[in-house]
């Protein structure tokens, strides 16, 4: 909460994070609306509000976090008011109001993991990520590295107490984590990123080629007005953007 925003405005105040560059910007697309409606349909009729959490999860998966603009939209989808969505978003620690990094580390610090050295890992990971451990407070336990690649969050119990310390990286749980293992995980993440970038570059090249082809076709077909070109281009880029988190998911799953 900064000096200028009051406690209420802070609920929907944008929190900038270097992690944003790895995620598409929140945008209400027909696909997103369709997905939300699909989630709403899972619940009995008239109980649209039940879909608040599932939609939040979907938004978070797609866009990295729940940005202020998303909350009124979710409220609209679930037929409730924005303050209810805000009440839920601000309640659950699993819902981010700030964009995490591309690789989000959750380090358990609850009793069993703490006994096996979970808390001692935090400063090490901080130094590896280049973030300041002092920024992690009880109120705001997530920090994002300046390059947006990493984020670190101290969390409570990950329910794998016998095999601590536990660290979750995106969707994957790593147990009995040591400093050495952290190095390995981070190296693997970097490798994954490089592969993804290569893939994205190839996709971009492909898209550019397709565009060039389309333009050539349009030029050949003089009856087609030029204005048509722009909307035709948009879905292609959107698809490329939407691919990113999906690629991330499959990549982490493999491990």
């Amino acid at each position: 909460m900064s000096e200028t925003t009051n406690a209420i405005d802070a609920i929907a105040a944008p929190v900038s994070s270097p992690g944003e560059k790895f995620f598409p910007k929140f945008e209400v697309t027909p696909e997103l609306v369709a997905k939300a409606q699909e989630l709403v349909a899972l619940y009995p009729e008239g109980k649209e509000q039940s879909a608040v959490l599932p939609i939040i999860h979907h938004v978070q998966e797609e866009f990295g976090y729940v940005c202020p603009e998303a909350m009124p939209w979710i409220a609209e989808m679930c037929k409730c008011t924005a303050i209810h969505v805000a009440g839920i978003v601000t309640f659950y620690p699993g819902i981010h109001r700030k964009c995490p990094g591309k690789f989000h580390f959750r380090v358990c610090r609850t009793i069993a993991c703490a006994l096996s050295g979970g808390e001692e890992l935090l400063p090490y990971i901080c130094s590896k990520m280049g973030v300041d451990p002092a920024e992690m407070t009880d109120e705001e336990p997530m920090v994002v590295s300046p390059d947006g690649l990493w984020s670190l969050e101290a969390v409570e119990c990950l329910a794998n107490c016998g095999f601590g310390p536990n660290v979750m990286v995106n969707d994957t749980l790593h147990s009995q984590v040591t400093r050495g293992k952290i190095d390995e995980i981070m190296a693997a993440c970097k490798k994954e990123l490089a592969a993804e970038r290569k893939e994205a570059a190839a996709a971009k090249k492909e898209a550019a080629a397709a565009r060039r082809e389309a333009r050539a076709a349009a030029a050949a077909d003089v009856t087609e007005p030029e204005a048509e070109e722009a909307p035709a281009e948009a879905p292609a880029t959107k698809k490329a953007a939407a691919k990113k988190p999906a690629a991330k998911k499959t990549a982490t799953k493999k491990k």
Binding site: L42, Y43, S50, L53, P54, I56, H57, F91, Y92, P93, G94, I95, V155, E156, C157
Partner: peptide
């Protein structure tokens, strides 16, 4: 049966 995911609250 519907799978409903929580969000990290004890």
């Amino acid at each position: 049966i519907v799978l409903h995911r929580g969000a990290g609250a004890y």
